[in-house]
């Protein structure tokens, strides 16, 4: 019988052969693609606290395939349901599952932690009907710590996300009154790629307010001031915030900066005229609040009454024009 090479390409052996050859042929391309995708932020290698945890996370993700986000959203909704009934353990449990399903989603960490360090904290401190005041304080503290642990884990998974640092910083600022630690986390937040400018500014303010790093704080705030001066000169747009001036003046006092090196007493109100057209309606209550604060403070900001007047004029112009 005449033999033909096509005979080789028949039957189960041929199928196995082709599958193996195909698998081996694609391997290098697949590895390269995986490297490229990882570089772009996809499929990042897992770095859980243990190999078992990594396997667990991967197993869970694999098992749910493309449905894990639906499951995690569902779990988030369930957590909100438990939140309504102040069942904090259940809220925590659900958010831990959500974080297991989508560890690379910063919102999962931020929202979960927020329930711990703010909602559970406040409830134990003010609304818990079962415990004594001392126990309530202790429990409230415990929930703040839980929130902090969660945020730190979130940072491990999402080192490039500014908002988890920011939230952790706020927990230090508002719950622990540890402004230096808060400043440090704002600094880390400001270093992440694409971080908004205000994170750097708040870092400067907190550094100034924490009392231990006045000179460093002055350097940071001076940098922001100089940058603003350059913009003002170049574009006639004032980007300084009143708080910057307030904080700098306080620092100048504390550091005994010679008068000639201090920032000028008044600055060009024209700059504000250019800066304030932006969202005047939304800005007005903010400026009014700042003006109120400024009036009650030791060093009132001389420019603020002028700014408020400018903003009001802008609103008047807009409503008159329309």
């Amino acid at each position: 019988m005449k033999w033909h090479w096509r005979e080789l390409l028949r039957g189960p052996a041929a199928v196995a052969l082709v599958l193996l050859a195909g698998g081996l042929a694609r391997a290098p391309f697949e590895s390269k693609l995986l490297v490229d995708l990882r570089k772009a932020g996809f499929h990042p290698p897992l770095h859980g606290s243990s190999a078992l945890q990594e396997v667990g996370v991967q197993g869970m993700m694999g098992a749910l395939g493309g449905l894990r986000y639906m499951v995690s959203t569902f779990l988030t909704l369930r957590a909100n349901f438990h939140w309504e009934f102040q069942d904090w353990d259940k809220v925590l449990e659900h958010f831990q599952l959500v974080q297991l399903l989508e560890p690379r989603n910063p919102e999962a960490w931020i929202t979960g932690a927020w329930h711990c360090h703010s909602n559970a904290w406040a409830w134990y401190l003010h609304d818990d009907p079962k415990h004594s005041e001392t126990t309530r304080r202790l429990l409230a503290r415990e929930w703040v710590e839980r929130g902090k642990v969660m945020l730190r884990q979130g940072i491990e998974w999402n080192p490039d996300d500014p908002w988890i640092y920011r939230d952790l910083a706020n927990v230090y600022r508002e719950r622990d009154r540890d402004l230096c630690q808060a400043a440090e986390y704002y600094r880390l937040a400001s270093l992440t790629p694409g971080a908004p400018d205000f994170l750097h500014r708040i870092y400067g303010y907190l550094l100034a307010q924490c009392g231990e790093h006045d000179e460093d704080a002055m350097k940071v705030l001076r940098g922001i001031y100089d940058e603003g001066l350059a913009v003002l000169r170049r574009q006639r747009v004032l980007i300084w915030k009143p708080s910057l001036i307030v904080e700098m003046r306080k620092l100048e006092e504390r550091l005994n900066v010679p008068m000639e090196q201090r920032i000028p007493e008044r600055f060009d109100p024209e700059g504000f005229a250019i800066a304030t057209p932006l969202l005047p309606e939304e800005s007005l209550p903010v400026y009014e609040r700042l003006l109120e604060k400024s009036r009650n403070s030791e060093v009132p900001d001389p420019a603020l009454p002028g700014i408020v007047a400018q903003v009001r004029a802008r609103i008047g112009e807009k409503s008159g024009g329309s």
Binding site: D197, L278, V286
Partner: peptide, 12 residues
């Protein structure tokens, strides 16, 4: 505007 920075904002 009202939350994160606690003060006025720039166009940027």
């Amino acid at each position: 505007l009202h939350g994160a920075a606690g003060e006025a904002v720039s166009l940027n």
